[in-house]
């Protein structure tokens, strides 16, 4: 269990960007991607997302587990939606009837060219969002989170809270490990396999409660330190100064344009309705 924010993209092209670029890029990309239901455009968005991800040079070995979990979860979500929606497909062009291949045994859910395309677009969209989002955790230096959000217009108190949150993570994770070890020494058995969820939740109490209460009680030192330095009495200054260079501006213009094009395209073209390749339509 390693919860320390890992700066895996250190030195990469993306890590050298102003960290605000990484945050704004994700926001623009998410808002653009959720408007697109045309498979061809979604494939282009995936290409953009993975090209962007590659510039962060995050070693795959280090994030393999995260990718596996994310892909597994997306697959389950898309599959469950396909099953439970019982063949109802959103974003079908007007007047188009689903081209049904057959029905799932027992459930009777129709499987059609349109439902498969819909599921594929959903899957690709989630993958692209994950690829664009990854660099926020791994290609932004942990010590600039506060100033990043402050310069993005987040009130400085909350920007400072975000900064503190990242800083607390490693020490709280360590406290949590120590609590588990301490309870094991006292004979706590965490391996009991009762099927009763209430009993299993209650079994976590000896670990969760001391970890949480100790963390809160230990916060007094931090609060006192902040009070003694006059936190909240005036606008805070930050050590780091963020300046957008020419490349940063070009990246921002690129992602901003993507959002504008996706929005206008959704209004005046068919990019926001499902497009089904002819090749998969049953003859």
């Amino acid at each position: 269990m390693n919860f320390a924010p890992r700066y895996l993209g250190r030195g990469s092209w993306l890590a050298r960007r102003d960290p605000r670029v990484l945050v704004i890029a994700v926001v623009c990309f998410v808002l653009a991607a959720i408007q697109v239901w045309d498979l061809r455009i979604m494939l282009i968005l995936d290409l953009i997302a993975f090209a962007y991800y590659r510039t962060a040079r995050i070693p795959f070995r280090q994030v393999r587990r995260q990718w596996m979990l994310a892909i597994l979860f997306v697959s389950l979500l898309v599959f469950a939606n396909g099953i439970i929606a019982s063949g109802r497909i959103q974003r079908l062009p007007e007047g188009v009837e689903p081209h049904i291949y057959g029905y799932i045994p027992l459930l009777g859910t129709p499987v059609s060219a349109e439902s498969l395309t819909f599921a594929l677009v959903q899957f690709l969209r989630f993958l692209s969002l994950i690829a664009v989002g990854f660099p926020i955790a791994f290609a932004i230096a942990p010590d600039v989170f506060g100033v990043t959000f402050a310069r993005l217009g987040v009130p400085y108190r909350f920007a400072y809270a975000i900064d503190l949150t990242w800083r607390f993570i490693p020490s709280l994770a360590e406290d949590f490990r120590s609590t588990i070890d301490a309870q094991r020494v006292r004979g706590m058995d965490f391996t009991g396999q009762s099927r009763n969820p209430v009993a299993r939740v209650r079994r976590q109490i000896p670990v969760l409660v001391p970890t949480i209460v100790n963390a809160i009680a230990g916060a007094e030192d931090t609060i006192d330190a902040m009070d003694l330095r006059g936190f909240g009495t005036g606008e805070r200054t930050w050590f780091q100064d963020l300046v957008l260079d020419r490349t940063d501006k070009l990246v921002l213009i690129g992602f901003g344009s993507l959002l504008v094009v996706a929005t206008i395209g959704g209004l005046v073209t068919s990019s926001s309705v499902l497009w089904v390749p002819d090749a998969i339509l049953p003859r």
Partner: peptide
Amino acid sequence: SRTIVYAAIGAAL
């Protein structure tokens, strides 16, 4: 400061 620190601890935990 109290709000900020408790919020940060809660979010981190």
